[in-house]
């Protein structure tokens, strides 16, 4: 029960956190130069986005729940099991970010999901 609760917080916090960060990064705009100064400037702009901080907050919640989970479960169980967020992430990308998911991309995500289920159940 404790494992299921922490796993849910890890998965949902991770999905909504990454979706919020993704939204913020699209607002910042495409990084075209990988020079150190350009990357610093990119980070400065990213840190001004409120969606970024919301995302970081959710990712932190997910991260600390994962730290706790790792203290009593194997890393080779925890990490594959948290991959449930690949399914919730695909749905969130479509519904919240409005991304186009082609049949091939869905097929890939389906393979990943089945693989994750196998990994988590074994």
């Amino acid at each position: 029960m404790q494992t299921a609760l922490f796993l849910s917080i890890v998965v949902l916090g991770n999905t909504f956190g990454e979706v919020a960060v993704s939204h913020a990064m699209k607002e910042v705009g495409e990084v075209r130069s990988f020079a150190f100064r350009s990357l610093l400037d990119f980070l400065r702009r990213a840190f001004r986005e409120k969606w970024f901080w919301l995302g970081i907050g959710l990712l932190a919640l997910s991260f600390f729940s994962q730290l706790a989970l790792l203290s009593w479960e194997d890393v080779s169980f925890v990490i594959p099991a948290t991959a449930l967020s690949y399914v919730t992430g695909a749905l969130a990308a479509k519904w919240l970010l409005g991304e186009h998911l082609s049949p091939r991309r869905w097929a890939g995500i389906l393979f990943v999901s089945v693989g994750v289920a196998l990994v988590s159940l074994s």
């Binding site: 990454e18 979706v19 960060v21 993704s22 990064m25 699209k26 910042v28 705009g29 495409e30 990084v31 990357l39 990119f42 990213a46 991959a83 967020s85 690949y86 992430g89 695909a90 969130a92 990308a93 479509k94 970010l97 991304e99 186009h100 998911l101 991309r105 890939g108 995500i109 990943v112 994750v116």
Partner: peptide, 18 residues
């Protein structure tokens, strides 16, 4: 992850990073 998401789809990066 932040840098790649400035241009790439989240639904691409997320499963690819699996």
């Amino acid at each position: 992850f932040m840098v790649v998401l400035t241009w790439a789809d989240y639904s691409f990066v997320m499963p690819a990073s699996a």
